[in-house]
Design a protein around this nucleic acid. Structure first.
Lengths: 206, 206
DNA sequence: ACCTGAACACCGTTCAAGT
DNA sequence: ACCTGAACACCGTTCAAGT
């Protein structure tokens, strides 16, 4: 009884989020190539035309998912920034781990965020903003490390881009199969430690 | 006259390559999301069913393109390796430039190679081999630098993965719009110099 | 305001039939 | 051996019509 009522309210109440939830499930199961809006609608229990009341088109729904992904990365950076205020290396390592974990656990979301599919034609301000907010929150970690005298005096942006490139590169190589995926959290940590060690040699003042 | 003859021989002679050429054109124009095998066939002047005589399915055609991309990267590494035999840093820089140039000039090909779309389900030995051959040719550059006493004594594979991650990361960030694209070869060089400088501080023995 | 059903113009893929 | 045309089961998107 309660379920039926909830179901009815569900469809009338928050279809946008219901669609996003369904999309995440389908994305994880089928991958982006076989992703269809019609199936999303079916899973959410509405007609195939209903999503168009809430999203301009298929891409707009995927974009909403990518934006959530960027927000998540931003949060990861902020949390690790606050958790280890006196240890920039740890901040960086944990942020990187969060990054890699997202990519490994939600590869399709990462694919949406970084493949360029969504930025091919339209700029889409909200997407752009979400992305640069995430980058900025990494920049704060680097800036903090500089102020603590640990990192090189090169321009913060330069250091940030390089550090980001490094972790992003590993993430994408995992996604694309150029590096074999770690099968445990432990293996992932080992990989991340190796990369960050080699990377830090260039980041640390000496 | 000669043209008509050539055209006739073309269709009977080398449809696979004609399809790949057409696919590259369409990919560059429309992006991967709107890429259709039917249009490729139309551009090559055959029926929409003809491609299936030469490629198992749509993905197999895209895979052939990705394999060509990897071969190109492998060639880039080899050429720069042979051109600057006594300057590993230069070898590395030029290889990186070739990498970034490919991504900027043929973003859709790069997308195919690195997005993971093609490695989602099937392993596809030829694709895997093409990829690892490209990685190996970068490894030689690092190995050479180690033997010349310029690079750190860490394991070659570790250094290779980190260096590759860095250039790959920048490439993917350009693709995905996280870093704004250089508008000239000169701007690209400046960006590459910045990255490689920061990277090398960790790569160089000191 | 939100949703449905039919409609349109596309797809990928298969398969009998043609040359 | 290689290609075509029709056919099937899907898409994304639009739009009148329903509640």
């Amino acid at each position: 009884m309660i379920n039926i009522k909830a179901k009815e309210r569900y469809h009338h109440g928050d279809l946008p989020n219901a669609l996003i939830d369904a999309a995440l499930l389908i994305l994880a199961r089928d991958g982006i190539e076989d992703f269809s809006l019609r199936e999303v609608a079916k899973m959410a229990g509405v007609s195939h035309a209903a999503p168009y009341r809430h999203f301009k088109d298929k891409m707009a729904l995927l974009e909403a998912i990518a934006i959530r992904g960027y927000s998540h990365l931003e949060a990861v950076c902020k949390i690790s920034y606050e958790r280890y205020p006196h240890d920039p290396n740890r901040q960086l390592f944990e942020a990187g781990m969060g990054y890699l974990t997202l990519v490994l656990e939600k590869p399709e979301v990462a694919h949406l965020m970084f493949s360029g599919i969504l930025t091919k034609n339209h700029v889409s301000l909200p997407l752009k903003q979400a992305g640069s907010k995430a980058v900025k929150s990494l920049g704060w970690i680097i800036e903090n490390g500089k102020q603590q005298g640990i990192y090189s005096d090169q321009k913060t942006e330069k250091l940030t881009v390089t550090a980001l490139a490094c972790v992003h590169g590993i993430a994408m190589m995992l996604l694309g199969g150029l590096v074999k995926k770690p099968e445990s959290k432990q293996q992932l940590k080992t990989l991340a430690k190796q990369i960050s060690e080699t990377m830090l040699q260039g980041l640390l003042k000496r």
